[in-house]
Amino acid sequence: DHWEIRVGDITIHLKDVDEEIIRWVEEALRNGDDLEEIKRWVEEVLR
């Protein structure tokens, strides 16, 4: 699977990601969370 999350001008590409993570990231972006923080979290989860 390949996911693209778009929020404003930001697009995040994710592969082999659980839908729950996608929802979490979308929510975090909508809440204005720091992008670097989100990326770190996702990388942590995917490890």
Rank of each mutant, 00 (worst) to 15 (best):
H13M: 13
E36H: 05
V42T: 01
E26S: 12
E27G: 07
E27H: 12
R30P: 01
H2G: 10
V42A: 02
R6H: 13
D1Y: 11
R47K: 15
A28S: 07
E36W: 04
H13Y: 13
H13F: 12
D33W: 15
D9E: 11
V17Q: 05
E4G: 02
I22Q: 10
D1G: 11
G32Y: 08
I10T: 07
T11W: 10
E19T: 11
E26K: 14
I38A: 01
K15F: 10
E44A: 06
I10D: 04
K39E: 06
E4F: 11
V17K: 06
E37V: 07
E37K: 12
L29T: 01
L46Q: 03
H2P: 11
E20G: 07
E19H: 14
E4D: 07
E19N: 13
I22D: 01
L14K: 02
A28G: 06
E20V: 14
D18T: 14
R6M: 13
V7Q: 05
W41L: 09
E44Y: 02
R40W: 04
I10G: 04
L35A: 07
E43D: 11
D18I: 13
D1T: 14
R30Q: 07
V42L: 15
I21A: 02
R47S: 15
I10W: 13
L46Y: 03
I5H: 03
E19D: 13
E44K: 03
R6N: 09
E4T: 02
H2A: 05
W24S: 05
V25K: 00
K15I: 12
L46E: 01
R23A: 09
E20C: 05
V17A: 09
V25M: 04
G32F: 12
R30N: 07
E37W: 13
N31D: 01
L35T: 04
G8S: 06
N31P: 08
D16Y: 03
V7R: 02
T11S: 09
H13G: 09
I22F: 13
E20M: 07
H13Q: 10
W41K: 08
K15V: 11
H2R: 11
E4A: 07
I21F: 10
I22S: 03
